[in-house]
Design a protein around this nucleic acid. Structure first.
Lengths: 246, 246
DNA sequence: TTTCTATTGTTACATTATGTTACAATAATA
DNA sequence: TATTATTGTAACATAATGTAACAATAGAAA
């Protein structure tokens, strides 16, 4: 029996419990989400995983997101646990196992009902090197308006993630996690606009950001274009320590 | 073997997964929370329970809160799932089972690690008839500043519940769930003050509530005291339907 | 009846926040 | 040196909020 045939050792994991992650990135214009494609099934899903008996929920999620993105320091926020009975549909997983050449009988715990704890992650788009998981052969960025049809309730999970992200946009310093270390005011505004989905007033945005007293102004960035060069900024707090899961 | 000796049938429930509820009530002056006292142990805990294989998470919680309070229509909101390894401490449960005369060996699944999904409930204090669960001989209202020492991380759960409640106070019509059908503006203000923990300006509060356009004004209430009688109000929407778990 | 007290509903004004427009500064180009 | 696109900031208008004041009034006391 190769490890390929038994990707998940039943004894290691808490049964009936999973996590799913909505991994947001910003490509300079749009918000994007990482979506997996399971091998030979045409099934798309959020990156997820299970929780080992000897690891914390947060650790499990952090580990999972790290494996998909290659990134160590991840901004993660738990936003909802989904436990409806409609989640219980063994067919997709059966198909996924079959198409991966995995014995169903000895992995039947994967066909059980699962309650899933959902997290969203915010990461610097440029730094990510997406990697499929053991059951997938594809993982790619999709923008919100061109998502493929997703398994189970994953679409609903994304919508709730976005709702929470919008709610948290003002009270937490979320912008920083989607941008490189230094950025212009315009880039920051574009992140905000991509998240809330509507344009913002330039002058008011600048005033609000500066008065919040969380930005440090650095040197200008000369783009080579024929107009005034914008200042670069960074956030004062190096990372939002209390919310980063260690 | 009496059912008393086996209060929870292992086969019926999802293992390693529980829920806890922070049930808020308002007695006219302070916010209160329902706390259980386990029989002969001196251990205090939040009302909680387990999820059956064939019921949804929300249903399980609603059912549990109904059993503790006797109330059918409950405002419930899920706010966080707790999955730290520090939660794994079998000693309290061992003691609880022993003091209830329950065989530990045949109920050892209760000693395992549990990940818990936490909800808060808002209910009309007057309507509640608290009932202990099968392992408890006491359930009582405690105000936030005189909570007994609680099991495990239940203190942390309460603090997170309160934080979420405060965050949601303005965007959702939470006040209504803690008050009787009709109430005065002052009573509504007292609910708000009890939740946020600081006094509010009377004039500004009245203006804000009235401009929100969610209140209906009814007849005056004559208290018998020698001063102007206040109007009674009720909320326009009968119940915040989308958030009430059916 | 009249006066008094405590509380309420509402207005008035001051302060702060936000929305909108305008304008000067400036980096590259022609 | 003029031109163009963009940026930083100021100016003004509007809306929201904080604070204080005042008239109305239900009952008690004089």
């Amino acid at each position: 029996m190769s490890s390929k045939k038994h990707p998940f050792n039943k004894e290691e994991y808490i049964p009936h419990l999973a996590f799913d992650s909505v991994i947001f990135g910003f490509n300079g214009r749009k918000l994007k989400i990482l979506v997996l494609e399971y091998r030979n099934t045409g099934l798309f899903a959020l990156p997820g995983g299970f929780i080992k008996h000897n690891e914390s929920l947060d650790q499990a999620v952090k580990q999972g997101v790290r494996q998909r993105t290659g990134i160590e320091d991840i901004y993660l926020e738990q936003f909802q646990t989904f436990g409806d009975l409609e989640r219980f549909d063994p067919e997709p997983m059966k198909r996924i196992l079959k198409m991966n050449g995995i014995d169903i009988a000895s992995n039947d715990w994967l066909l059980n009902r699962f309650i899933t704890v959902a997290y969203y992650a915010l990461i610097n788009f440029e730094k990510v090197v997406p990697k499929p998981d053991s059951l997938s052969d594809g993982i790619d960025w999709y923008s919100l308006d061109e998502l493929p049809p997703l398994m189970m309730d994953h679409r609903k999970i994304i919508e709730k993630a976005l709702e929470t992200l919008r709610d948290n946009l003002d009270k937490k310093l979320l912008g920083m996690n989607l941008l490189p270390e230094k950025f212009t005011m315009k880039e920051l505004q574009q992140v905000y606009e991509a998240i809330i989905g509507t344009p913002l007033n330039r002058s008011g945005f600048q005033r609000k950001m500066l008065s919040a007293n969380t930005l440090v102004r650095h040197e200008k960035r000369f783009s080579g274009n024929s107009h005034k060069a914008p200042y670069l900024y960074s956030f004062k707090k190096p990372k939002e320590v209390p919310k980063t899961i260690k």
